[in-house]
C-alpha cells in the first residue's frame, strides 16, 4: 500500500496529480495525504513546502523591490501548488 505510492510516482511519465493517484490506488484522498506525510517523515518524499521554507534567506533585502527575496515573502511570488518528489532522485 505504502510502497505502491512510491512505485506509482516512479512509474509516472510526467507530474502526477494527487486526485488521480488516490483514484488509481482506491485510497481516499485524505488517507493518501496521511500516507504521503508518513513518507515525508521517513525522508522518502520531499515536501516542497518544507523545502522552500527551510531555504528562505532573509538576510538580503535588496531583491524584489526591497522585500524578502525568499519565495514566501516577495510580493510577486505566486501561490504554487504543493509538490512531493522522490528523495531517491536527489543526487549530488
Amino acid at each position: 500500500m505504502l510502497q505502491q505510492i512510491l512505485l506509482e510516482i516512479e512509474k509516472a511519465q510526467g507530474p502526477l496529480d494527487l486526485n488521480n493517484l488516490a483514484r488509481k490506488l482506491g485510497i481516499e484522498r485524505s488517507a493518501l495525504e496521511g500516507m504521503i506525510q508518513f513518507w515525508v517523515r521517513k525522508g522518502r518524499l520531499k515536501d516542497s513546502e518544507l523545502e522552500t521554507e527551510l531555504n528562505c534567506d532573509t538576510s538580503d533585502s535588496t531583491a524584489c523591490g526591497g522585500s524578502c527575496p525568499g519565495p514566501q515573502n516577495c510580493s510577486f511570488v505566486m501561490t504554487m501548488p504543493r509538490t512531493y518528489s522522490l528523495a531517491s532522485y536527489d543526487s549530488e
Binding site: 516577495c74 510577486f76 511570488v77
Partner: peptide
C-alpha cells in the same frame, strides 16, 4: 512565477532537488 518577476522565479527553482 517568472511571469510576475524573474527574481522570485529564480528563488522558486529551489523546489528542484538536483
Amino acid at each position: 512565477v517568472g511571469f510576475g518577476c524573474s527574481v522570485p522565479g529564480l528563488y522558486a527553482t529551489r523546489t528542484l532537488e538536483n
